[in-house]
Design a protein around this nucleic acid. Structure first.
Length: 639
RNA sequence: GCUGGCGUAGCUCAAUCGGCAGAGCAGCGGUUUUGUAAACCGCCGGUUGGAGGUUCGAUUCCUCUCGCCAGCUCCA
């Protein structure tokens, strides 16, 4: 047998993996959940009968977590069957941070049910039943589950191709499962059921609805507690809650679902985002354009949206016997701007950028705060270029994207290259050329990436970016997509060096994705405590008594003249209350002015969070606040 | 869209079994002139999301409808 440290050991045939590891590794036995035998995950009590490599699996690895949570799901299923024998088993896989199990049951599970099930699950853990693997022929297994009334399990087995299936037994509970599992129920140290909800059998809404229970488990109570604390933190930072508390935006019945009202403070933050965005684009050789919110239906027929995107569009409206369509995308307009002149190869690349507001019909059940809405503003741009320019353009887009995302505190990014899907337009040659160009751009820019085979859009390959927020959650915002379809549909051309017409390539790209969604992500990322450059109010001036109001007003004027966003809190309230409310509003700096400060033309500065920065002059405050703003160092591209 | 839950004052939440809709904060009017996370007193505030029904009587029970929340599915 070969171990991961490279040592080899000779053991009697039939020795279990557990015995081998216990004898020859120093790793704590209680950390080892399962093993990899020749790279294949297996149970700890797998008998070793030939020469193989054996590697322990612990909770630290993704496979370890999966096995741990999968075993947890079985324990929960056993508990459900014991508490509610009429519940039927279906499937129960591990997921990112836990597991779920779907049951066919006559009614939804209540929180009280979950408590009962959780208590029973704890007893099962305490009983420390060994978890044993059984093998059966398919027919035997079907008969077995059929006899027990588990018709969903029988259905699953019928669809398995192997003639032999595996089952796992713990106590009296037996479930179909590929495995592997931990060796006994007692290996699960901390288990918690989190929620229940309906879910369709096989995820299809035409199928009967099952009752799903979500849960999670960890090797220690401390780790479980830390996870639950994180869930609390996620709730605390929810942009819908913070947005209300900080008065950033609202969504009201009178307006309609999925349509956002930006309140002054939210609008001011948005303005900073947009100003930064425009500056960056102008520096990087983009030209800004504006386009209308509606256009003749014919335009959307030409673009193909009527045929392929109708389900996501608002219904057309008719005006003076013509039909108009509210725009779901900006591209056709940018194309029309391109087409307004005959273009030379010398003009390319042409880069049109627009913060374009689009409207899309989304099913009511999917709307979610700012993250999923029906009207949103894309930070859109379309680059028209020659095929040989794709690589350079994409590389520049990626560089700009990174720069922009960095500004918002997102430094952890993952890139994905999506290649040709089954149904696609454009020749094989075009696809290969464009995909190679994207890959070259990724490599040339030194970006690490993962390939998503077949995940490209039908009109061309794309690169997607996922950012990680302060709580470690991944969000996809940025996308760069090559498009062979629209240039064809609209008959785009440029005159080449040869004096003949050629078709340009179009690149769609968005860095932030949607301003609404990105803003929602930002609110949660910062927990509402925006950095100084984005904060709607940067300095709150707080007079101790109304005798300092005039002086406070002077301070505000000075700060505003220096380009800072400052407000005076002239209410007849005590300083403690003013500070408390400025803290709750998450204002980065507070400038307290009392008798002493007014006399000496200074202010007493308190930073958000309670740090006292001491007494200083107004111009020192300006320097202090400015020192907290980012500087811009991305070089412009020569155009 | 589907399944389930929820909808009470601007906000956060009470209201026993179907029996007079209530509190804190906010707002407004006073008092207070305050030194780094909540001063005090008073006042105002509601077709209980909307429509219909059952009932002597509905926030409470029933039907429909709108919206929100969780999940399924889909996506920026």
């Amino acid at each position: 047998m070969t171990l991961p440290d490279g040592t080899t050991h000779v053991v009697p045939s039939g020795t279990t993996a557990k015995e081998l590891l216990r004898k020859y590794t120093r790793q704590n036995a209680h950390e080892i959940l399962a093993v990899k035998v020749n790279g294949q995950p297996k149970d700890l009590n797998t008998s070793l009968t030939e020469d193989v490599s054996v590697e322990p699996i612990t909770f630290a690895s993704p496979e370890g977590k999966e096995i741990y949570r999968h075993s947890s799901a079985h324990i929960m299923a056993q508990a459900v069957k014991e508490v509610f024998p009429s519940a039927l088993l279906t499937i129960g896989p591990p997921i990112d941070e836990g597991f779920y199990y779907d049951f066919d049951f006559e009614r939804p599970f209540t929180p009280e049910d979950l408590e009962k099930i959780e208590l029973r699950a704890r007893e099962i853990i305490k009983a420390n039943y060994p978890i044993e693997r059984l093998e059966m022929s398919k027919d035997e297994a079907i008969q077995f589950f059929h006899d027990r009334g588990e018709r969903f399990k029988a259905e699953i087995i019928r669809q398995i191709e192997d003639p032999q299936v595996s089952l796992y037994r713990q106590g009296d509970f037996i479930d179909l499962c590929r495995g592997p599992h931990v060796e006994s129920t007692g290996r699960i140290k901390a288990l918690k059921l989190l929620s229940s909800a309906g879910a369709y059998w096989r995820g299809d809404e035409r199928n009967p609805m099952l009752q799903r229970i979500y849960g999670t488990s960890f090797p220690s109570q401390e780790e479980l507690d830390a996870y639950l604390t994180k869930l609390e933190e996620i709730k605390r930072r929810d942009h819908r809650k913070v947005g209300k508390e900080l008065d950033l935006f609202s969504i009201q019945d009178e307006t309609g679902p999925g349509l956002i009202l930006w309140h002054p403070k939210g609008a001011l933050i948005r303005l900073q985002i947009e100003n930064f965005w425009r500056e960056q684009h102008l520096t990087q050789g983009y030209e800004l354009v504006y386009s209308p919110h509606v256009a003749r239906l014919e335009l959307w027929k030409t673009s193909g949206h009527v045929d392929y995107y109708r389900d996501n569009m608002f219904a057309p409206m008719s005006v003076e016997s013509a039909h108009y369509q509210l725009k779901p995308m900006n591209c056709p307009f940018h194309i029309l701007v391109y087409k307004s002149h005959l273009r030379s190869y010398r003009d390319l690349p042409i880069r049109y950028a627009e913060l374009g507001t689009v409207y899309r019909y989304e099913r009511s059940g999917v709307l979610h705060g700012l993250l999923r809405v029906r009207g949103f503003t894309q930070d859109d741009a379309h680059i028209f270029c020659r095929p040989d320019q794709i690589e350079g353009e994409v590389k520049a887009v990626l560089t700009l994207t990174m720069h922009v995302l960095h500004r918002f505190g997102f430094t952890d990014c993952e890139l994905y290259l999506s290649t040709r899907p089954e149904h696609a337009v454009g020749s094989q040659e075009k696809w290969e050329q464009a995909t190679a160009a994207l890959e070259a751009a990724l490599q040339g820019g030194g970006f690490a990436y993962t390939i998503d085979p077949g995940e490209g859009v039908f009109y061309g390959p794309k690169i997607d970016l996922k950012i990680k927020d302060a709580l470690g959650r991944a969000w996809q915002c940025s996308t760069v997509q090559v498009d062979f379809n629209n240039p064809e549909r609209f008959g785009l051309c440029y005159i080449g060096e040869d004096g003949k017409e050629h078709q340009p390539i179009m690149i769609h790209r968005a860095l932030l994705g949607s301003i609404e969604r990105f803003f929602g992500i930002l609110v949660e990322h910062y927990g509402g405590a925006f950095p100084v450059w984005l904060a709607p109010v940067q300095v709150q001036v707080l007079p101790i008594t109304d005798k300092q109001h005039a002086y406070g007003q002077t301070v505000v004027h000075h700060l505003r003249r220096a380009g800072l966003r400052a407000e005076l809190d002239a209410r007849n309230e005590k300083i403690g209350l003013k500070i408390r409310e400025a803290e709750k509003a998450k204002i980065p700096f507070m400038a307290v002015v009392g008798e002493r400060e007014a006399q000496s033309a200074t202010v007493s500065v308190r930073e958000r969070g309670g740090v006292n920065k001491g007494v200083m002059t107004v111009s020192e405050v300006v320097d202090l606040v400015r020192s907290c703003m980012p500087s811009d160092e991305l070089a412009s591209v020569p155009q």
